[in-house]
Design a protein around this nucleic acid. Structure first.
Lengths: 295, 295
DNA sequence: CACACTTACGATATTCGTAAGGATT
DNA sequence: AATCCTTACGAATATCGTAAGTGTG
């Protein structure tokens, strides 16, 4: 019993005519005749009674009819669903992105992606860089966006280099300058993101060889909170340059840092061993084209 | 997408190896490779990632796996059910039989039938001859057993000729005789079956040309009730000879009638235009062999 | 005799298995 | 080197369509 035979059966059962059914199936009557014959051999008995002038179902054929209908409907449904999944007609993508990217770049990219593939739902996990790495590692998301990761099991495709910038309160002594030295910046109370943050780690790393120390006096969990703290004069901080417009909107002043080491590649992260779905691949491509122009 | 491709997919997905899967499918690796290739072309994307050293499912393949399992399970289930139905492994038969036959012959036939086909359930409608005809006509049963019917749409296969016999109370004036004349019989109160009964109709028909009249003084719905009434001396009656043992067991005396016209063929009845199931056909054969030897 | 299904038969496709190819561990 | 999947190719198989056959109304 194969699919073609069952389709033939259904067509004949519904038309009660080999001629009409063969037209509906775009085949010859003889081929249809053979298909039904094959089906009957496979089942071990006749499903139709042919009296040269009329075709009717046997009781066994009668009981096959609803079963065949359901079987073929399910069959086509599965076939269609998989086709849709491959052609991006349907699908689901889960990604994780670090906040600076999620806020400043992702919306634009997602708008473009959704325009291309409106039926694919996207779930964004807006978490700090460390959690992005974890979620990709665990397999909770197929794709992450963050700083270049250490684990060898993860692959990385850079989008752009993000440099850190200093943010200071308006009206502070830095106002006239465009660039600021670390030494001058650290004279002020330092407001940092929560401890396991990538920003924090990079800052400590880049200051390792210098006599300077990060005196963290305030901590926050959200970039916008840090920005607002700085804006109200509680201290200074260092954030990814991506956040510049956001920080300025909050009322903080953004200054470049005179230290080239504070530059990190931001890019797409995925698990080498895990396959990405067609939908994820499509999003990957959009992010690659949109994400490499952060402005 | 066809059945073979889906079976190939399932085998590879479960073994994660083309070699092992091809052994399980009793085919060559190349054939399996082509089958998967064909499936992937049909679906529009890859379901496996082959890295020459390992095979793993793509996310799309992962989502196909449970669907394929169900599809094939349903498929095989339908195939098996139909095979069983044809090979009489399962099935259901509905027949209608007139009471005299249902009581005196059918049990023996059904015992033999059930021994041959234990998984086939049989539903017996124990109804008067007229209802047997109706139920076959309507299609409520595929097979009936009763007197030869009139409708041209029904086919009839005789099993035996049943003649009517007189039943009288023990100790009545007939005791010494083996045969009884109509005239003598109708001197006594006549107990008949309910009006539309075939027995009643035949009796009236066979008395049409004679001066005798059926004076029905009592009516009952069941043969055994009639028998008991006769046995207790309420009157006399005429019943199919088949019921002889039953009537004697109830205490009535059975006498032959001196009238050859009171003989009717009893046999199998079915609708010419309606197909009979394999199970019904099997029962038909058993009834033909058992039913033609009523004793 | 016209219609509808089956069978026959040659041609076309498809599928199969063996064997060679390519890639990875 | 050994293993495993893919590709190539000739052979076996299956399927198809045309056309003839068969039986019914």
């Amino acid at each position: 019993m194969n699919v073609k035979q069952l389709r033939s059966f259904l067509a004949v059962a519904e038309t009660l005519s080999f001629v009409i059914a063969s037209e509906r199936l775009h085949t010859s009557q003889s081929a249809l005749s053979m298909a039904i014959k094959g089906l009957e051999e496979s089942l071990g008995g006749k499903v139709f009674v042919r009296t040269t002038r009329s075709v009717q179902l046997t009781p066994e054929g009668e009981s096959l009819l609803p079963l065949a209908r359901k079987l073929l409907a399910d069959w086509d449904s599965v076939h269609h669903e998989l086709q849709q999944r491959f052609s991006l007609g349907i699908g689901k993508v889960s990604i994780a992105a670090m906040p600076s990217f999620a806020i400043n770049v992702l919306p634009r990219a997602l708008k473009q992606f959704r325009a291309l593939h409106p039926k694919i739902s996207v779930q964004v996990h807006d978490v700090i860089n460390e959690d992005v790495i974890d979620m990709v590692q665990i397999g909770e998301v197929e794709l992450g966006i963050g700083f270049k990761p250490y684990p060898a099991s993860l692959a990385f495709e850079p989008l752009f280099n993000d440099q850190f910038v200093a943010i200071v309160p308006p009206g502070s002594g830095f106002e006239d300058e465009e660039r600021v030295e670390w030494e001058a910046l650290l004279q002020h109370p330092f407001i940092s993101l929560q401890k396991p943050s990538a920003v924090h780690a990079y800052l400590e790393d880049s200051l390792r060889d210098s006599p300077l120390v990060l005196k963290t006096e305030l901590e926050a969990h959200q970039l916008s909170t840090v920005g607002k703290m700085v804006a109200t004069g509680l201290g200074v901080s260092v954030v990814p340059a991506l956040c510049t417009p956001q920080m300025e909107a909050l009322g903080a002043k953004v200054l470049k840092l005179k230290d080239a080491r504070l530059e990190q590649p931001v890019g797409l992260i995925w698990h080498r061993e895990r396959e990405r779905s067609a939908a994820t691949h499509a999003l990957y491509n959009v992010l690659k084209s949109v994400g490499s122009q952060p402005d």
